[in-house]
């Protein structure tokens, strides 16, 4: 009989930088759950991991890039999308994924989101929306629901809240979906589907922040929030994005709202330049100049 005991291993371990564990996320935080979903989606789709780049901004979700064993970039606050745009345009053969939080992508980085969606840059943007800035102590973000307490909205938020799927669709995104960190299978499946598509793809994942958002709003622990997500999520794949806005502790519409094929930035560029330059134009497929 062997004296060695087999250690139980997480099946996604090969995808993680295990030497960096334990991670920095709090108990009950949903970000790790979404990373699990993403790792499964990469496996399920047999995505070439050597050709996949992950770009994060700053914040709790911004740390995702540091834990996944991919070519990964932890950039500046709000700017993962333009960094990813540069990667994708210089080498269109890469799968480029942006993984960041609601504050990073939609407050400081909002303009970049708008324009990358408008141009239909061929990247997947995953936003973990926990309604708050976790890393800096629970301040108001553009997605904080009306009346929710934040450290910079001690009397409750009175600003209007961003409806992210509606924003994404109206800016021209090719694929728009929302799930929650309770829906692990659906989230993984949705990520896998999005990985197989072309164009600007956006997935919002509603996720708990027990340490700050829930504590300050007296919403219980991580488990209590999971219960809320379970009981209040309604799947409506054909929902109009204008109708999927979020209220404080209200119903959460989940599902795939937009899935359309459209020429990407590079498709448009190649078509236009071929039309106007004719034979003089060689189709752009990435920078080949030897450096």
């Amino acid at each position: 009989m062997s004296t060695e005991e087999k250690k139980p291993t997480n099946p996604i371990e090969p995808l993680l930088r295990m030497e960096r564990m334990p991670h920095i996320w709090c108990p009950g935080c949903g970000i790790g759950t979404t990373v699990n979903c993403f790792a499964r989606a990469l496996e399920d789709t047999k995505t070439d991991l050597d050709k996949t780049a992950l770009v994060s901004g700053i914040g709790c979700t911004g740390r995702v890039a540091g834990y996944l064993k991919l070519d990964s970039f932890h950039t500046t606050h709000g700017r993962p999308i333009p960094f990813a745009t540069g990667l994708k345009l210089a080498n269109p053969k890469l799968n480029v994924v942006v993984y960041s939080g609601d504050g990073d992508l939609f407050a400081i980085g909002g303009n970049h989101f708008i324009h990358a969606a408008r141009r239909n840059i061929d990247i997947l943007v995953i936003c973990v929306n926990n309604y708050t800035y976790g890393m800096t102590g629970g301040q108001l973000t553009p997605t904080t629901p009306y009346s929710a307490i934040a450290s910079t909205a001690p009397y409750g938020n009175f600003e209007k809240t961003f409806n992210l799927p509606y924003l994404a669709e109206s800016c021209g995104a090719a694929f728009v979906a929302r799930w929650t960190s309770y829906h692990v299978r659906q989230t993984a499946k949705c990520m896998a589907e999005a990985l197989g598509k072309k164009g600007f793809r956006f997935i919002e994942i509603i996720s708990p922040c027990p340490t700050l958002y829930q504590r300050r709003n007296k919403l219980g622990d991580g488990l209590a929030f999971m219960k809320y997500l379970k009981e209040n999520s309604v799947r409506k794949d054909d929902a109009q994005t204008k109708d999927v806005g979020l209220d404080f502790q209200g119903e959460i519409t989940v599902g795939k709202f937009v899935d359309r094929e459209m020429p990407t930035f590079l498709d448009d560029m190649n078509r236009r330049l071929s039309e106007t330059m004719g034979d003089k134009y060689e189709k752009y497929e990435g920078i080949k100049t030897k450096i």
Binding site: K88, L89, N91, N111, G286
Partner: peptide
């Protein structure tokens, strides 16, 4: 955006 998009370009090999 311009000043970080170029870093994407550089790390992609340009």
């Amino acid at each position: 955006a311009s000043s970080i998009a170029i870093y994407g370009g550089v790390w992609a090999g340009a």
